[in-house]
Write a protein that binds this DNA or RNA. Structure first.
Lengths: 129, 129
DNA sequence: GCGTTACGACTACACTCGTAATCTGAATTG
DNA sequence: CAATTCAGATTACGAGTGTAGTCGTAACGC
């Protein structure tokens, strides 16, 4: 079959990820709108954001839809999937692929407070159901 | 005070990290020993490992100690600290700095199986004590 | 209609990374 | 002592990244 849909695409860099976050928060957006939303925090020029958008389009992580003389940009991948793959990478790299040691580490590093732990217990109970 | 000790140093790249793992497992090691331990899995030449070692020394993540005509290499940072900072980076970037959502994500993505969850509960109980 | 904008496309450029090869000097071997 | 060898230092080099600037063209304001 003539492919055309899907396409995992290469990895998304950190700067590109910031752009993705803007698009996951709201889309479609124009380049200027994306810029308005990310330049603020990152101190980027519009040109920089445009470059990042093109690279994301090249990586097929973002799709464009023409809107008159300009483009509307939308993510083609779900944030959940991205988060999942990034989390997995970390777990693979640092914890031998096992997620439990990561949680153990977070507990030991006191990255989790009482509320977090209570929340986790709740999630586990929920999951068990 | 004339500094000179410590120095967090720049970020460690992924290839460099593989070298760090070898040194965390055993140190001090010579360049050849490190190479023997990592080249296997990565398919790197000794030259590559030497380059990575120099870069790690430049970043002050690894220290050298002369041993005759050669050097013995040892990590200057603890694996725990590295794991901690990498985990934090992920949590900051993807979960707004809160670790609980990461665990929630792992549970939902079914990255955790029953054993993992049991283990986490054990850790939590342990932590509570 | 014509100058001014607004946009995407193309170009730029220094720096990091992955992956080595080569150079240089010292040590070891005959 | 000369030849070989081994180790670190230096150099290489293409791909990817961060961070823009410039070009060309189509639309919009007057």
């Amino acid at each position: 079959m003539t492919d055309q849909p899907e396409d995992p695409g290469e990895r998304i860099s950190e700067a590109e990820h910031a752009v993705m976050e803007a698009l996951w928060e709201a889309s479609p957006l124009t380049a200027t709108e994306v810029s308005d939303r990310v330049s603020e925090a990152r101190g980027w020029s519009l040109a920089t954001v445009k470059t990042l958008l093109s690279r994301l389009v090249a990586k097929r992580a973002v799709a464009t839809e023409p809107d008159g003389r300009r483009f509307l940009y939308s993510p083609t991948i779900e944030r959940t999937d991205y988060v999942d793959s990034e989390s997995r990478r970390l777990v693979d790299r640092l914890f031998g692929g096992r997620a439990a040691p990561l949680v153990a580490h977070l507990v030991e590093a006191e990255a989790l407070n009482e509320d977090d732990i209570a929340e986790i217990e709740r999630l586990i109970r929920e999951f068990r159901k």
